[in-house]
Design a protein around this nucleic acid. Sequence first.
DNA 1: TATGAATGAGGCTTCATTCAT
DNA 2: AATGAATGAAGCCTCATTCAT
Lengths: 216, 216, 216, 216
Amino acid sequence: MESTIARGGTRAPLRADAARNRERILVAAREAIVEQGPDVALDEVARRAGVGNATVYRHFPDRESLLHHVLIHVSDRITQRAQEALESERDPFEALSRMILDSADERVGGLCGLLSLSVDVHGAELAAGRQRFLKVTEELLARAHASGQLREDVGAGDLLVAVSRLTLTVPGSTCAHDSTLARRHLQIFLDGLRTPPRSQLPGNPTHLADLKDESR
Amino acid sequence: MESTIARGGTRAPLRADAARNRERILVAAREAIVEQGPDVALDEVARRAGVGNATVYRHFPDRESLLHHVLIHVSDRITQRAQEALESERDPFEALSRMILDSADERVGGLCGLLSLSVDVHGAELAAGRQRFLKVTEELLARAHASGQLREDVGAGDLLVAVSRLTLTVPGSTCAHDSTLARRHLQIFLDGLRTPPRSQLPGNPTHLADLKDESR
Amino acid sequence: MESTIARGGTRAPLRADAARNRERILVAAREAIVEQGPDVALDEVARRAGVGNATVYRHFPDRESLLHHVLIHVSDRITQRAQEALESERDPFEALSRMILDSADERVGGLCGLLSLSVDVHGAELAAGRQRFLKVTEELLARAHASGQLREDVGAGDLLVAVSRLTLTVPGSTCAHDSTLARRHLQIFLDGLRTPPRSQLPGNPTHLADLKDESR
Amino acid sequence: MESTIARGGTRAPLRADAARNRERILVAAREAIVEQGPDVALDEVARRAGVGNATVYRHFPDRESLLHHVLIHVSDRITQRAQEALESERDPFEALSRMILDSADERVGGLCGLLSLSVDVHGAELAAGRQRFLKVTEELLARAHASGQLREDVGAGDLLVAVSRLTLTVPGSTCAHDSTLARRHLQIFLDGLRTPPRSQLPGNPTHLADLKDESR
DNA sequence: TATGAATGAGGCTTCATTCAT
DNA sequence: AATGAATGAAGCCTCATTCAT
């Protein structure tokens, strides 16, 4: 029952073992993508998950679909934590910071920043999850702006793209996995976001609408 | 003669057409790597350069060699611009900023941040180029620190890794090529680097030595 | 179970269809090597076996591995036949002759004489097979010598190298596939091996130890 | 003048340096073929000859042509030596032996036995050279038969194919380059050719006509 | 003429995806 | 449902051959 809901309620409920496999694959895929990038061999994912390769395809017809659901997975978690930040944190800028650092923990960058960026959002499920996340983000931003702590000339798009990049695993590099480094840079970036602005930015604030998928 | 020197003086001078091809390949490779990452198909590079695939191999026996020389190419340019900034810019922080933004223009991130990061530096030529770049960078940093404009708790390693990431093309994304976005984020990051520091950073300043290659 | 044993007992038993393919590939490879030498295109082997090229790689990770197993295949057969000759043939020279002519039937030469010669014998399986073959060969030789029918100035190395060469497919030639021709030459060679020797041979008897791999 | 004749008198005389190059290439090609088989990279031949690769093509339009002329080269030499054996050697079997051992010295086998076998003999020049060689061979054989020393059931084809194989470099093997080994085997083979025959051969005597090219 | 350079075809190998048990 | 096996397309690289200096 519950698993049916979790999957969006569109299919017959999964058998217990199938559901366990599905979960394992998603977890393995997230790890693999974070470590090796979005081009990981799917056989590698299967190996990590401890299942046969074809099982991956039974659950996710193609690579895109797998990515898709990994994102939903991640999206749900960071949305939830953002929500918590929104509710429990008094200071609006602090709340924004928490959301950003939490996102970094999920290695959103290693996941291609797909969440915030230009993923082909065709699945209703992902679209909905993305909406939820964006809504919370906008809210956090609005409050920070309103509080006068966040410089006026930045939009949600700026934040999400930047966090994606700063937490991205640099392909071919080895030291860059260091998450402490990412935390440091995010912190510096956050400091740069505070008022008063110490410089004038080129271009215009980037909003979420500006990140719409333009691919293909 | 001159071309011999330009290539390091180790080989016989190239014929005019061969030199032209070599150049074309380097340019095409840099673009391709920036757009598609360091795993681009070499056939793709050949196509962009308008030469047969085997020609790529004649000039660069393997992928590593090609990357190697692309980096030398880029390294030379950003070092030169950093040098200019060092010499002509009065304000130390301004000089540092210029170097960083110039590096971004070369899409160092798309090049795997290989320059600043952990590239396997076995060629004497690249090693020397890297040294030159790092020396100028350290100098710029030292002056900025000395002037009291740059927060104390950051090292050259922080800067170079961050600029690599902020200029990295996010694989799978399309909008992220927008270089204006990168400029904006670098600017925000630079603002975060100024004194007085607006927060305390986790971990310790990352210096260049900390970026040493730890792979294999 | 049995198939497991047949394969050396090191892996899980193959599925029926996979085992069939494996066998087909080995057979096709043997033929192809015999006809075109050890450098045959593996795609050619795949075509002959009626499987996709990648299937060859699934069973044999690289060319060396394929050769390896082809040799084991052949080794097992000629050893068995040599054993039969040893046991059932009264006349020692006759037994030796049978072994040699049987080996020729397997086109040992076309297989690079790898069995008797300098194959890089790293696999325990092949090493063991080779030992079994060499042991029987030595025994056959010893008996023939003891019977006074085989000239004293030849060793096992002489025989094995000669049979390899006389059964070798001459690259670029077409008529040379004629196995009758090979039989004729082997017979003449065998006649030259009988006592009394009709000439004095240059050099010394070549023993098996002299054939040890000296490559790399 | 002479060089013109040597090349068949069909072209303008070569410049001195060109003639030297031509010779070098032929020598290098023979060596390379002997060592690495008939599939040697032509760049390798060029390197050994100390000329540019294109120079090989200037002299010999394609690989076949090069092989062709290498064979003419070899053919001339072994014919001459066979002629000498025919004239100076009293004992007919001895003369035949000399021819065979001399041929072995030229590594006729390594040259694919192309001379005696099925080379595509389209060039008049090679055809003529081949004819000369075969004529001497037949004469040597006829005398040996007439003297009663050579078993009746063998033909020239048997001899030439056998000597080709026994002197062939076994691809992939390393020890087999040992020419002493080849000499030993040829000697044993020659012993087997003497009367009285020690066995009955299968099939029929192979004559030169039987070796006609049947390829393509 | 001699040569270094360029090229396309072909072999090797991997991997996303499909098939059969 | 789960899996091992099979497949073809695509990337890497080499080499025979052609081109341009």
